[in-house]
Write a protein that binds this DNA or RNA. Sequence first.
DNA 1: CTGAAAGCGCTTACAG
DNA 2: CTGAAAGCGCTTACAG
Lengths: 342, 342
Amino acid sequence: MTTRPARAETPLASLATVARAAGVSVATVSRIVNGKRGRASAETVARVEQAVARLGYRPNPVGRALKQRASRVVALLAPNLDNPAMAAIAVSTEAALRDAGYVTILCDTHDRAELQDEYLAAMRSQFVAGYVMVSAVASRGLEATLRRGDPMVFVARRSPLGGGAFVGIDDRAAGAEAADHLLDRGVARPAVLMAAQNASSTGERAAGFIARLEQRGLAPQEIRRASAQGLNHIEIGYAAARALVAEGGWPQGLFCVSDLIAYGAYRLAREAGVAVPGDCRMVGVDGNAINAWLAPWLTSIRIPYEAFGGHIVAQLGQLWGGGTGSHVHVRHGRIGDEPPAA
Amino acid sequence: MTTRPARAETPLASLATVARAAGVSVATVSRIVNGKRGRASAETVARVEQAVARLGYRPNPVGRALKQRASRVVALLAPNLDNPAMAAIAVSTEAALRDAGYVTILCDTHDRAELQDEYLAAMRSQFVAGYVMVSAVASRGLEATLRRGDPMVFVARRSPLGGGAFVGIDDRAAGAEAADHLLDRGVARPAVLMAAQNASSTGERAAGFIARLEQRGLAPQEIRRASAQGLNHIEIGYAAARALVAEGGWPQGLFCVSDLIAYGAYRLAREAGVAVPGDCRMVGVDGNAINAWLAPWLTSIRIPYEAFGGHIVAQLGQLWGGGTGSHVHVRHGRIGDEPPAA
DNA sequence: CTGAAAGCGCTTACAG
DNA sequence: CTGAAAGCGCTTACAG
């Protein structure tokens, strides 16, 4: 029977504990723990490291944050995490931040300006190292944070106030590819479904789609489009499809600016007995992992959300280094690409 | 043209700033800000409150945490947030904690003991107020945290080490209801699909299902069951269904211990040309919002994840109050219930 | 009713 | 190479 090492693990060891145990000052322990090299004799370093190991010491981030007025915490603000795309962004961001030694505070803004401001203020007093704004909405607090120059990267939706680092795909190009895809398959008059108040991302997808259609010879008034109010893209898809169909029947091809919108449109098609893709081809954007299992009828432009985290952290790194950050276009998948195996 | 109020919003105001502005001591400001009633004259209170408003002061949680060795931060540890059920739990927990004045730190453990321990240790040194463990895994750090008596509530999966507050549904009852449902619809020999290493939740669902089948007259060896290795329930569902079918063909009715497993099984059915529910009825558990749109063929037992947050916070409240916490069974929906409108 | 002081855990000039 | 001291923002006995 092995005896468990009698480690005093209950009390949280502090610098002072370690200093006492090693017979040195807290300043010395602090320097060694923080790897300030060449500032202590090898013998001292060894004694301190032993004490650290024996006591299971870990630097207290709260004490450090208070002193430095800066923490290793990053705030992730997002509207509704129940959207699979948001969840995927949150997952990859959390993992990338963790690898970089940061911890993620999760703030669900429900797309509301006051809640976003409330969180922004609360996070600021936590001395967070930066802000990751997924689909941010315009607000006074956002403006103040930006003006202050605090590290902030926008994801998916560009800064509603201009400026700021950005990570997302080239949405206009994605829209154009959807247009090409449908046109190339003989759909003479593809239609587009979008939200009434489009985020920059979905708005640009629709714009890119329409622009390409015009380039390839359709007159603006020939391009059918419909939208619906709301926050939930599935319901928007259903309602927008109904509006579209009411006006001119089912199109042969339909570009949905998000996969969720396509799911909503699909329900209407099912109810109407319209075969997808037989009677109506559908192209979405996101490439949700679930598609292969539940929506084999959907062709989607895959957004590699699993790669966003790395780019987001790289942008934060630039900002922390005093740089200005930039707009990163992550390369989206080719139409119909499936996600990599888990 | 309205002039913006000249509020010095850039520097973060501290107690000292406010004290100076109001001409009182920091102790007095602290008491007033913290609502310690009857400890200051009405006149002083008014002066301080004015200064607070004018300077836009908010108490700094870092200073407070350091002093009190306790913060208003709660750690939420979960394996993979890309599971819609996990995301739903995270959303409702974050909202309920926010309403209670807490902030949520998100930790994705990937179901790995070392990562869970790493986070547990990191969160402890953040002086978190408590831990919400969604589907926790056994680990040394978990044991230490539990032994220390730190506030911890387990969600969905019971504590792998026993003890602890718990929030989840009555999984055995859910399994039994699935058995009744299939039997009552004339399925003579319903089968069950599960994961190879079952969490307490899914394990109990399967056990409840099997027990009810036996109660209603099936011999143990008549009850078909299959499982598969892995973490991803969709893939488990696909593989387990294949194993089941290889052994004895398609059953007329199939209980899948989670909706995701049902999605996986459905893909195999689709590939095999088996109609669902025509040839094979499927019953899942979770009631994912997406089902109504993408999986109308699935009958599911809905888990009201949106209500979990409130119960979790209530449990934490009990623990904070010195209570012991309890096992809360949230009432699950009746088979086939749809989620409430958003 | 109010304030001075100590101390939570840390870092960092400064002095030696 | 090392330590004493100040200070980040806060709370809380203690004294008056």
